[in-house]
């Protein structure tokens, strides 16, 4: 219930209507969107029960490892109602053609594989919010100071997922496990995304805001 309340509202990409469509424009729009979503996601993390009790250093380490997984999982959940399209924002939906134009066809297809998986499972909002918190708590940073505290956070969130499934999905006793088993693909996809945006950063043709850059650098 706390995670459902903490879930942020959707945000808008607001692409500049005066700039002609191009790969640079699409990537600039996405990087600006990601930067604003990251601010929102840091605010969200503070509402995960147990997260604010971690040391500031451990909160930072988890976010530095897991931020892209959180961004992608949010795009994936928003895209569940559509076919072969990614809802980066309510006013920014990418189809295959736009993905090609932005040079994001491979990355977006990888994200669509996640969408397909969760669609087939009928992922519910309750499951999505817990899974997203688990992705953060389980982001495998090598810099964690208090591993026991992070383990306790993982246990609480894992327990919440199991309790939810035990009361709502009695017919499938393995559903919690099935959901957890989707996380490797999320990790893999996020790593691809980070790699892609790191090379865009190196190119230097797309303006990026400071928080996005800071977190990309934490991954480099």
């Amino acid at each position: 219930s706390l995670l459902l309340v903490a879930e942020p509202e959707g945000i808008f990409a607001m692409p500049d209507p005066t700039v002609p469509e191009s790969d640079i424009k699409a990537l600039t729009t996405l990087c600006d969107l990601a930067d604003r979503e990251l601010v929102v996601n840091i605010g969200w993390a503070k509402h995960i029960p147990g997260f604010p009790s971690l040391s500031l250093a451990d909160q930072m380490s988890l976010l530095q490892s897991g931020w892209m997984e959180i961004l992608i999982l949010r795009v994936v959940f928003r895209s569940l109602a559509l076919e072969d399209k990614l809802v980066y924002a309510e006013d920014y939906i990418m189809d295959e053609e736009q993905s090609k134009l932005a040079g994001l066809l491979d990355l977006n297809n990888a994200i669509l594989q996640l969408v397909k998986k969760y669609k087939a499972m009928g992922l519910e909002k309750e499951e999505f919010v817990v899974l997203k918190a688990i992705a953060l708590a389980n982001s495998d940073s090598i810099q964690i100071e208090d591993l026991e505290a992070v383990q306790r956070l993982q246990d609480v969130l894992h327990g919440a997922l199991q309790d939810y499934e035990a009361t709502h999905r009695l017919e499938d006793p393995r559903r919690a496990g099935k959901l957890i088993m989707t996380l490797p693909l999320l990790r893999q996809t996020a790593a691809r995304a980070v790699q892609h945006f790191c090379s865009i950063k190196q190119d230097g043709r797309v303006p990026m805001h400071k928080l996005f850059l800071e977190l990309l650098e934490a991954k480099a």
Binding site: I42, L56, M60, K210, L211, E214, A218
Partner: peptide, 15 residues
Amino acid sequence: KEKHKILHQLLQNST
């Protein structure tokens, strides 16, 4: 940690 100023600030803000 110096390198991650913005994340640090955002986490410290009470909002």
